[in-house]
Simulated scan of single mutants.
Amino acid sequence: MQVPLYQAKADLFRMLGHPVRIRVLELLQDRPMAVRDLLTEIGGIEAPALSQQLAVLRRSGIVTATREGSTVVYALAGGDVAELMRAARRILTEMLAGQNELLAELREAEAEAR
């Protein structure tokens, strides 16, 4: 039985729903990176935990892994993932701008009520 498109999209967003995975994708937008470099950049995460998150991204097909000697280098599988990360940033920026406008209106109303 085929999964409906909306279910497939929900599964994609659920898979992306981990802060470490998002951080990895953001870092890989700039260039492919070795695991040791990802560990350094992310900080505060142990190698096994990062490997687990990288495996989820690799299984989903969002990132690729290539072995260069004893080093595994990860890269985005395609430019669409980088575009998705940029779109998320734009959406968040708009949402926060809207909240700032609402906060300014509330403060103005509070000042007028005094």
Score class of each variant (00 low, 15 high):
residue 3 V to M: 12
residue 3 V to I: 09
residue 3 V to F: 06
residue 3 V to S: 13
residue 3 V to R: 08
residue 5 L to G: 08
residue 6 Y to M: 15
residue 6 Y to F: 12
residue 7 Q to R: 05
residue 8 A to C: 06
residue 8 A to P: 06
residue 8 A to Q: 10
residue 9 K to S: 09
residue 10 A to W: 01
residue 10 A to I: 14
residue 13 F to R: 08
residue 13 F to P: 10
residue 16 L to P: 12
residue 16 L to A: 06
residue 16 L to V: 03
residue 17 G to N: 11
residue 17 G to E: 15
residue 18 H to G: 05
residue 18 H to F: 07
residue 19 P to R: 03
residue 22 I to C: 13
residue 22 I to E: 15
residue 23 R to E: 15
residue 23 R to I: 05
residue 24 V to T: 03
residue 24 V to C: 04
residue 25 L to E: 03
residue 26 E to F: 00
residue 27 L to P: 07
residue 29 Q to N: 10
residue 30 D to M: 05
residue 32 P to F: 15
residue 33 M to R: 13
residue 34 A to P: 04
residue 34 A to I: 08
residue 35 V to Q: 06
residue 36 R to K: 02
residue 37 D to H: 03
residue 37 D to Q: 02
residue 38 L to M: 01
residue 39 L to V: 00
residue 39 L to D: 02
residue 39 L to R: 11
residue 40 T to H: 12
residue 40 T to F: 08
residue 41 E to P: 01
residue 41 E to L: 06
residue 44 G to P: 08
residue 44 G to R: 04
residue 45 I to W: 01
residue 47 A to W: 15
residue 47 A to P: 13
residue 47 A to C: 09
residue 47 A to H: 15
residue 48 P to E: 13
residue 48 P to V: 13
residue 49 A to K: 13
residue 49 A to M: 06
residue 49 A to V: 10
residue 50 L to K: 12
residue 52 Q to T: 01
residue 53 Q to H: 09
residue 53 Q to N: 07
residue 56 V to M: 04
residue 56 V to Y: 00
residue 56 V to Q: 04
residue 57 L to P: 08
residue 58 R to W: 08
residue 58 R to C: 08
residue 58 R to S: 09
residue 58 R to T: 11
residue 58 R to Q: 10
residue 59 R to D: 12
residue 59 R to V: 00
residue 59 R to I: 00
residue 59 R to H: 13
residue 59 R to Y: 11
residue 60 S to E: 10
residue 64 T to Y: 02
residue 64 T to A: 05
residue 64 T to H: 05
residue 64 T to E: 12
residue 65 A to C: 13
residue 65 A to T: 03
residue 69 G to F: 03
residue 73 V to H: 01
residue 73 V to C: 03
residue 74 Y to T: 00
residue 74 Y to G: 03
residue 74 Y to W: 10
residue 77 A to N: 01
residue 78 G to M: 07
residue 78 G to V: 04
residue 78 G to W: 04
residue 79 G to F: 11
residue 80 D to S: 14
residue 80 D to P: 06
residue 80 D to V: 15
residue 80 D to H: 14
residue 80 D to Q: 13
residue 81 V to P: 09
residue 81 V to H: 06
residue 81 V to E: 08
residue 86 R to F: 04
residue 87 A to G: 11
residue 88 A to E: 00
residue 89 R to F: 11
residue 89 R to P: 02
residue 91 I to N: 13
residue 92 L to T: 06
residue 92 L to N: 14
residue 92 L to K: 13
residue 93 T to W: 01
residue 94 E to F: 07
residue 94 E to S: 09
residue 94 E to V: 14
residue 94 E to I: 10
residue 95 M to G: 10
residue 97 A to N: 05
residue 97 A to D: 07
residue 98 G to Q: 04
residue 98 G to D: 02
residue 100 N to P: 10
residue 100 N to C: 12
residue 101 E to I: 08
residue 101 E to V: 05
residue 102 L to E: 01
residue 102 L to H: 09
residue 106 L to Y: 04
residue 106 L to I: 14
residue 106 L to D: 08
residue 106 L to K: 05
residue 108 E to G: 08
residue 109 A to C: 07
residue 112 E to M: 08
residue 113 A to P: 01
residue 113 A to L: 02
residue 114 R to D: 09
